[in-house]
Each structure stands twice: as C-alpha cells, then as structure tokens.
C-alpha cells in the first residue's frame, strides 16, 4: 500500500473541493474494495478523502419512490423495512452479494464504483489495459472462465461484479451526482460503460464528481421479481451469471418486463429489444426463450468461458419463470425454484 494523505470533509461541497484539487485523490467510504486494491498496489491514490462523515446516510421517500443516500450501507438498504417491502428485488440482490461483514461496511455509492474481479486486473505482475492502459489484456487467451460474453472489446473482457447494480439497472434507478459544475442525474444503465478502447474508465462519472444518492423510481415490482445468481459456491462468490427479472402481469400476459444480467459484461446488461419483445406476450417458457436468444445473439465466448452463454440463456429463462410465478430465489435456501 502506498502512502497518501488523508482528509475528512464534513460536507459534500468540501468533499468535491478536496477531490477537484487533486486528480490522484480518491473518495473512501466503506473501503471494502478500495483498501483491497490499495494493498495490491492496483490503486495508489495520493490522497484519500474520507467521506463517511457526509450527511448522506438517509433513505427518504420522494416522488413516490425513494432516495438512498450514497453512504447508506448495503446491509441497511437490504434490511430496511420499506425497501424489503417495496423493492424486494433490490434487497434480494444485495443479500446475494459478498458477506454480512462486507455488506455492513460497503456503501451504496461504493458498491456502484467497485471494480472488476478480473484476475489480471488484480495482479500487477500481469498486463492489464484497465490497470495500466496499453499493456495489453492478460485475460484474453488466459484464464477467463469468469469473464465477459457481451459487450467486451479487444482491449478488455472484464465484468462488473456488483449484484446490487444489476437490480438497480432493472429497477431503472437514477444515480445522483454532485461535482464542480453542479449536480446531475445519470440513469443507472448509463452509469457504467463498456470497455471499448478505454477500459480504464469503468463509469461515466466525470472527473471531480461524487455520488450523493441513488433514486428508486415509483415502480416497485413487489410481486413478480427475482434475483437469480449462479456462482462457483453457494455463497460468498461473485456471479458467473446473475439475472434480475421484474415483471408486471395482466393475467398471463406480460405488461412490463425488466431484465438485467450480471457477470456477463462490463456493466449490468440490459437489452431494450428483449424487454420490448416480452411486452404483451404470454408469460411462457417459449416467450422467455425468445428473449434469451435475442439477448445472447451477439454473445461472444472467450477461450474458456463459452459455457456462460448457455448458462446465461438458461438463467434468463429461469429468472423470468421465477418472476412470473412469483417464486423469487431465496438467498438463504439454496434450492433453486
């Protein structure tokens, strides 16, 4: 871990100012990913701005939805009675991720900003365009069973590891940010980006900006939802593939469909065409399969992760089945519905 200086602002304005003054500075809140990366010398910030004292710890009702302060911990969100009741998809996704200890520390904003778990990104002995632009991608042709099947580039095949973000994508949450040029809103689906030729950049957050809140829109999907996560052990592992599915049904007919995939791309993966295809169709396996085929039409395997395409196809179908049946995946009962 490199050496750095440490500042602890009390207000968002102070925090933004502290960051703006120093491009090598990083915000720290839960620290669960940043300190991890600093110990590997993947992140070497010159200055840490401890934002844990900022007044961003509330969950408040607004416009029929909720605003979750950026510093609200993952555990607090997941177990909040209002969130559990009204956005069970979000609760479920959060509880599918990490461990109780990590969820107790990790913040809402930090969760969105966590970095890929690509082995090569983490290992400074190997090349990585995300860590050191221009050095190449070690994962291409290497050990890549956990890597992307959608939206990857020749420069980077990393995936975004968050579970929470996948649910937020399906819920069409909006990220509220504050920066030197004022405040702005970024829809969750536009918050993370694909690697393209600039994989070092994970998000569309502008330099100097801080996440202050995540807004949940009014639409809740209380009944027909699921967060289905498939991984290499039954808990405490990142997703090989995960599916956040949320439906509104009119009898057997799909009125609204939201579908986001985790573990398959550099961002939570949504496909508007597939969601449109589901709309107005009967909630049947055939319909779900058609949507899955559409989503995976452009999937591309790496040397050892081809199985993820078929796995994603099946997970989408199952996730939609679970959502349609109102039998969401339990995160403690490991039997899959």
């Amino acid at each position: 871990m490199n050496r750095f200086d440490y500042v602890r602002p009390n207000t968002v304005a102070e925090a933004v100012q502290a960051l703006g003054a120093d491009p090598q500075a990083r915000f720290i809140a839960g620290g669960t990913n940043l300190i991890d990366l600093m110990k590997y010398d993947v992140e070497r910030p010159g200055r840490l701005i401890d934002i844990t004292r900022l007044p961003l710890r509330d969950i408040t009702e607004q416009d029929g939805g909720y605003r979750i302060g950026a510093l609200v911990t993952n555990a607090t969100v997941a177990y909040d009675a209002r969130i559990k009741e009204r956005y069970p998809l979000l609760s479920s996704a959060i509880l599918a991720g990490a461990s109780a200890q990590l969820r107790n520390a990790a913040s809402t904003g930090g969760n969105l900003l966590q970095r890929t778990r690509c082995y090569y990104f983490y290992d400074t002995a190997t090349p990585c365009n995300k860590r050191e632009p221009g050095t190449g991608c070690g994962a291409i042709g290497g050990v890549n069973r956990i890597h992307a099947i959608l939206g990857a580039s020749e420069h980077c095949i990393a995936t975004h590891p968050s579970d929470m973000a996948v649910a937020l994508a399906a819920l069409e949450a909006v990220v509220q940010v504050s920066g030197p040029n004022g405040d702005r809103s970024i829809p969750l689906s536009e918050f993370h980006r694909l690697p393209g030729d600039d994989p070092a950049k994970d998000t569309n957050l502008a330099p100097g900006e801080i996440i202050v809140a995540v807004d949940l829109p009014a639409k809740q999907f209380k009944t027909n939802y699921t967060y289905l996560k498939l991984r290499d052990r039954l808990s405490y592992a990142f997703a090989l593939v995960s599916v956040a599915a949320a439906l509104e049904l009119d009898g057997e007919t799909i009125r609204t469909a939201r579908l986001a995939l985790g573990g398959v791309a550099h961002k939570p993966w949504r496909n508007p065409e597939a969601e449109a295809l589901l709309q107005g169709k009967p909630a049947t396996r055939e319909t779900f399969q058609a949507a899955a085929d559409l989503i995976l039409r452009e999937a591309k395997p790496q040397s050892t992760n081809g199985f993820k395409i078929e796995l994603a196809r099946r997970a989408i179908v199952r996730g939609l089945e679970q959502a349609a049946a109102g039998t969401p995946q339990s995160q403690s009962d490991k039997r899959i519905q």
Binding site: Y119, D232, L234, S235, S332, K334
Partner: peptide
C-alpha cells in the same frame, strides 16, 4: 491466477 480466497473457492458455511 486465482491466488486469493475470493477466487480460489474453498467451501463456506452455505
């Protein structure tokens, strides 16, 4: 390459 306990999976409680 998976030289850590996050990616080398030993069984957990679950």
């Amino acid at each position: 390459m998976n030289h850590n306990l996050g990616e080398y999976h030993v069984p957990v409680h679950a």
